[in-house]
Design a binder for these strands. Structure first.
Length: 219
DNA sequence: CCATAGATCGGCT
DNA sequence: GCCGATCTATGGC
């Protein structure tokens, strides 16, 4: 029997919930009943006291859902054409959330591919806006309950053999915070896995630390 | 493979 | 008016 996640698991800071969501499963029941599912392989944490977060300047009409109770979907529109989805975390009133950036398609692949003819399976949900498109998620699902809801919800998944941290993508403020979490073994990431943050002794020998700025970034 | 430009519009300064 | 928690097409190597 598929087991849904519990709301308490999301009632913690986004920074804590984010790595735990990697390896869980997002399920979508389309209007008409078809079921889509993907294993979460890449997410980003956004805290309230976080210059990169929509919640940073307090509640507005757009970000209202972020300030509500945990376990709901915060969906926003950007770049004039894309939808992105987050899972709201933390206590009500807090304004923190986890952006769902990439997933590995598990069920309903034909239905996803119908929306993206000619795409390899690993690319169908590899990117926050690709994923909402594949799953038929838009602003109408803003605020949906991902614990007890019937349109989209979270189930216990197989987990991930590893979860690594990396800088978040596409932001300017607080760009140095390594608040993106991903399964480096997944073929469905939104971009290739970054270099390991803690290099092996062998790698350290090959590329010794330098004095002064190091241009190498984990991307 | 990589880099760059263009799309396209709501939210906020 | 500016600019995004992005993606795709295109053109170069």
């Amino acid at each position: 029997m598929p087991e849904r996640l519990e709301r308490e698991a999301l009632a913690a800071p986004a920074l804590e919930v984010a790595p735990a969501l990697v390896g869980q499963v997002l399920v979508r029941a389309l209007p008409g009943g078809r079921r889509l599912a993907a294993r979460i392989v890449e997410v980003e944490a956004y805290e309230q006291d976080d210059p990169a977060s929509h919640a940073h300047r307090g509640p507005t009409d757009r970000n209202r859902t972020m300030f509500g109770p945990p376990g709901h979907l915060y969906v926003y529109f950007t770049y004039g054409m894309h939808w992105c989805m987050n899972v709201v975390t933390g206590p009500a009133g807090q304004g923190c959330a986890v952006l769902l950036r990439a997933g590995e398609p598990l069920e309903g692949i034909d239905e996803m591919r119908r929306r993206r003819p000619g795409r390899p399976v690993r690319e169908l949900c590899a990117g926050p806006a690709r994923w909402t498109r594949a799953f038929g998620v838009d602003g109408r699902l803003d605020g949906a309950d991902v614990i007890d809801g019937r349109e989209i919800w979270l189930e216990r998944g197989p987990g991930a053999s590893r979860v690594v941290a990396a800088p978040r993508v596409g932001i300017r403020r607080a760009a140095d915070r390594p608040w993106r979490f991903l399964d480096p073994g997944s073929p469905a990431l939104s971009r290739p896995a970054p270099p390991l943050r803690e290099p092996t002794a062998q790698a350290a020998r090959r590329r010794p630390p330098r004095l002064g700025p190091d241009a190498t970034a984990a991307r």
